[in-house]
């Protein structure tokens, strides 16, 4: 993996509401997404993982920090050219394949909408060729272009969502729980498709999920988020084999194991945030082992790492 940072997040915070009622959904999050890797954000609902994805897409303004794409700032006020570039190069796939496709539009239009907006084709023949290529790439037949979303199954709809992103020739795909709404057998098809596209196209993924078994299979690195903060970030296997933060341990212990005997023996770890005394000692973001980052007070870091 080349260590070229495509996307860097530098201490970003997102605040919703104003004044006394304001709520910081994301608090000082920093990480880098390298070219060709899959970085997963995992955490429970309300942890801010989706908000981070949306902040990158400029849906939510930042209250602090900065996001850069290939060294170029893309957060806050940016000129029209960078915004255009970003809109094309970073694409998103959503959780619910039914809600994210326009019911009244044919697949042909859904997939080409981005092309129309960006005038990415010279003539009609080129547009059709692009749509056809995108559909074939996700394993759908080109003749599906004249159908409507309701004519497809959940897995096929998710493929249409992926085709719509691919047609823009993005570098980064932000996938927000793309498989949570799918059945087990369909889930495997979509995971394979995402992996294959990553290989063939050299895509980078920011994969947002709460299902750790899928995340382990698909990611190169994993960032664990709890209440708007990344508490641990490490290479995928490293995190599963040597989890250091108590929250990560709790999360891993909750992953169901498809083996009755192992499952009976498993002990569920429950995370109690009150073990931290951050009023006295501010937590710091430190490298506990090469490439393995951890959030904790200096005392905790020493205790967890040993």
């Amino acid at each position: 993996m080349s260590k070229e940072a495509l996307l860097s997040l530098d201490g970003i915070s997102v605040r919703f509401g104003a004044g006394r009622k304001s709520f910081r959904a994301v608090r000082g999050v920093s990480f880098e997404l390298y070219a060709g890797e899959t970085l997963s954000l995992v955490g429970e609902s309300g942890s801010g993982k989706t908000t981070i994805g949306r902040a990158i897409m400029r849906v939510h303004p930042l209250s602090a920090g900065e996001i850069r794409y290939r060294g170029q700032r893309i957060s806050g006020a940016v000129n029209a050219r960078s915004e255009r570039l970003l809109r094309q190069k970073i694409q998103m796939i959503f959780q619910d394949p039914m809600a994210s496709l326009n019911e009244r539009a044919k697949i042909d239009y859904i997939v080409s909408e981005g092309l129309y907006n960006f005038k990415l084709f010279k003539n009609e023949a080129e547009r059709l060729a692009k749509v056809e290529k995108a559909l074939l790439e996700v394993g759908l037949l080109p003749e599906f272009a004249s159908r409507f979303p309701h004519e497809f199954s959940g897995g096929q709809r998710q493929r249409i969502g992926i085709a719509r992103a691919l047609v823009m020739e993005p570098e980064i795909l932000i996938a927000d729980e793309p498989i949570s709404a799918l059945d087990v057998s369909i889930r495997a098809q979509v995971i394979n498709l995402l992996n294959q596209l990553k290989r063939d196209r050299g895509l980078s993924y920011l994969f947002i999920a709460h299902d750790l078994s899928v995340v382990r299979f698909i990611s190169d690195r994993i960032a664990v988020i709890h209440r708007g903060r990344i508490v641990e970030l490490a290479a995928s296997e490293e995190l599963f084999l040597r989890p250091l933060h108590p929250y990560t341990k709790a999360l891993l212990s909750a992953v169901p194991i498809p083996d009755p005997e192992a499952e009976q023996k498993k002990k569920l770890v429950i995370y109690d945030p009150s073990i931290h005394d951050y009023g006295r000692e501010e937590p710091i973001w430190a490298e506990a082992a090469p490439g393995h980052y951890l959030l904790g007070s200096p005392g905790e870091l020493a205790a967890w790492s040993s």
Binding site: V184, S185, R187, A188, Q189, I191, N192, N195, D211, S213, V214, R216, F217, I218, S236, E237, V255, P256, I257, P258
Partner: peptide
């Protein structure tokens, strides 16, 4: 069973029906 991601080997295709 085979399509469970817990049983997948990284870098290989996950079994899909």
């Amino acid at each position: 069973l085979a399509s469970l991601p817990q049983l997948g080997v990284k870098g290989e295709e996950l079994f899909a029906i």
